[in-house]
Amino acid sequence: MDFGNRYLAELFSIGNITVYLTDTLLATWVVMAVLIGFALVVRLRLSRFTDRPTCKLQNVVELMVETLDKLGRDTMGPELMEWGGMFFGLFGFVLISNYIGMFGLRPPTADLATTAALALTVFVVIHFMGIKRRKGRYFKSLISPNPIFLPINLISDISTPVSLCFRLFGNVLGGYIIMGMVYNLLPRILTLIVPDPLHLYFDLMVGALQAYIFTVLGMTFLQQKADPED
């Protein structure tokens, strides 16, 4: 069995590098289409939104925004809420990516490239905000309590995005491999019934939990690095 990323077609080539259409790329496009489509629908219906919610869509959108807003306020504090939108986007992308595995596509988050890109985004934001808000004390915190600890502090900074991306990648890929093994193990007719409870756990629960944890850990690291009182 091959659980790797399949090359479906050749897209274009620059010099010696050929860019292929992979499973991850295809699934990422589907996720992007879902998210952009939802955003466009909300934008088109925005003029019909009222102070007291009357349609179902407004209730759903308000529920999502208020939940993420409260999460951000509790975790990051109100002064860092300018980054709340980014974490909302990250949460939505990771959640839909994990759930797309239920529709027969390979989840984009089961590819190290996707999770590394997401973790690097968080890493850049964390250190940008750290330098912007703490200025000199940010660099001083690298050599605290004394300059011998500089390599240790650097390693602990670098391990943040590494652990973020490996956690998401390992969880989703592990679930994907277990589901693939179950589907290959069973006779054809039984695959209609038996894997359903496993899908409940490995896709619905682990997917939502990992999206939540990725967002909350990113917020916590941002709050730790960018706290001006520290």
């Binding site: 509790d74 652990s163 490996f166 956690r167 990648f169 390992g170 969880n171 890929l173 592990g174 491999i177 939990l209 990992q210 939540y212 944890i213 909350v216 850990l217 916590t220």
Partner: peptide
């Protein structure tokens, strides 16, 4: 708040076994 703290702690504790899983893969 206890539930969310527990989930974050559980996720952090899980990282080591995820590293093991990745080495196995």
């Amino acid at each position: 708040s206890i539930l969310s703290t527990m989930l974050i702690g559980g996720a952090l504790a899980e990282t080591c076994s995820i590293y093991g899983l990745i080495i196995a893969l």
